[in-house]
Amino acid sequence: MAKKKLTLFDLDHTLLTGDSDVLWCDFLIRRGILDRAEFSARNADMETRYKAGTVRVREFTEFYVSTLAGRSPEEWEPLRREFLDVEIVPRIPDAARELVEQHLASADLVAMTTATNRYITELTARHLRIEHLIASEPEVVGGRFTGRTSGTLNMREGKVVRLHSWLASRESSIASFEVTAFSDSINDLPLLLAADRPVAVDPDEKLAAWAAEHGQPVLRLR
Rank of each mutant, 00 (worst) to 15 (best):
V110D: 00
L99A: 00
T114Y: 05
S136K: 12
I88A: 05
L104D: 06
E77V: 10
D108H: 15
L99Q: 09
H132I: 02
H103W: 06
A111N: 00
E77D: 14
S106P: 02
V141D: 09
G142S: 06
W76L: 11
N117P: 10
H127T: 01
T116H: 08
T113W: 01
A107G: 08
D108F: 01
R118I: 04
L123A: 05
D94W: 07
T114G: 00
T152V: 13
P78L: 04
E75H: 12
E77H: 13
D85I: 03
N154G: 07
V141G: 08
I88Y: 06
H103L: 03
T116W: 00
R97M: 07
R81P: 03
H132S: 12
P93M: 08
E87A: 14
I88P: 00
T114V: 11
W76C: 08
V86N: 13
L123H: 04
D94G: 14
E74C: 07
E98V: 05
E98A: 15
P90D: 09
L79C: 02
L153G: 00
R91H: 09
R97Y: 07
L133M: 12
G147P: 04
L128S: 01
W76G: 14
I120Q: 13
F83S: 00
E131A: 09
V86G: 07
R81M: 08
P90K: 09
G151T: 02
R91P: 00
L153H: 00
I120K: 06
